[in-house]
C-alpha cells in the first residue's frame, strides 16, 4: 500500500543498505535456549568473506562466551539455521559462500544444553 502524501512521491531511503557499512554486512546470531544473555539476538558487522569458522572462534566468544554453557558446547553436534534453513556450514568457506547475506539471521542450536539449570536461560 502506498503511503498517502501531501505533496508528490514518498521518498525512498533505504537507511541500512549494505553499502553504508564500509565493506561489512550485518549478521545476526542468536543462541537457542539461552535467554540468559539478555534475551535479544546479537548483531555484528562482519566482512562477507570472513571464514565461517572465524565467527565461532573470534566473534561469538566475546558475547556468548560469558555464558557458562559456552565451554560445554560439543561442536560436533551443533546445528545451524541460516535464514530459517537448516544448514551444515562449510567452516573454511566464507560467510557469503555459506549463504550468509546482509542482515541474515543465524540460529546456533546446541542440543543437550538447556541454559542455566535447564531453565533455557
Amino acid at each position: 500500500m502506498a503511503i498517502n502524501t501531501i505533496n508528490g512521491e514518498y521518498p525512498e531511503i533505504i537507511r541500512d543498505a549494505v553499502e553504508n557499512f564500509h565493506g561489512n554486512q550485518l549478521v545476526i546470531v542468536d543462541w537457542e535456549n539461552h535467554r540468559g544473555l539478555g534475551g535479544a539476538p546479537n548483531m555484528f558487522p562482519l566482512p562477507p568473506d570472513m571464514p565461517f569458522k572465524a565467527l565461532i572462534a573470534d566473534v561469538l566468544p566475546g558475547v556468548f562466551g560469558l555464558h557458562a554453557d559456552w565451554e560445554k558446547i560439543d561442536w560436533a553436534t551443533v546445528e545451524w539455521t541460516i535464514d530459517g534453513e537448516e544448514v551444515t556450514p562449510n567452516l573454511d568457506a566464507s560467510l557469503k559462500e555459506n549463504g550468509v547475506g546482509h542482515k541474515s539471521f543465524i540460529w546456533l542450536k546446541t542440543p543437550g544444553l538447556l541454559g542455566y539449570k535447564g531453565t533455557l536461560n
Binding site: 542468536d30 540468559g36 546479537n42 566475546g62 542455566y116 531453565t119 533455557l120 536461560n121
Partner: peptide
C-alpha cells in the same frame, strides 16, 4: 519458572566478580 533463575544466574555471576553485561549490540 522463567525469570527468577535468570536473576539468580546473574546474581551468581556478580558474586564471582563478573557482573553480566552483554558484550555486543542487540538486534532491535
Amino acid at each position: 519458572k522463567y525469570y527468577r533463575p535468570r536473576w539468580e544466574m546473574w546474581a551468581e555471576m556478580e558474586k564471582e566478580g563478573k557482573r553480566f553485561f552483554n558484550g555486543g549490540l542487540p538486534l532491535d
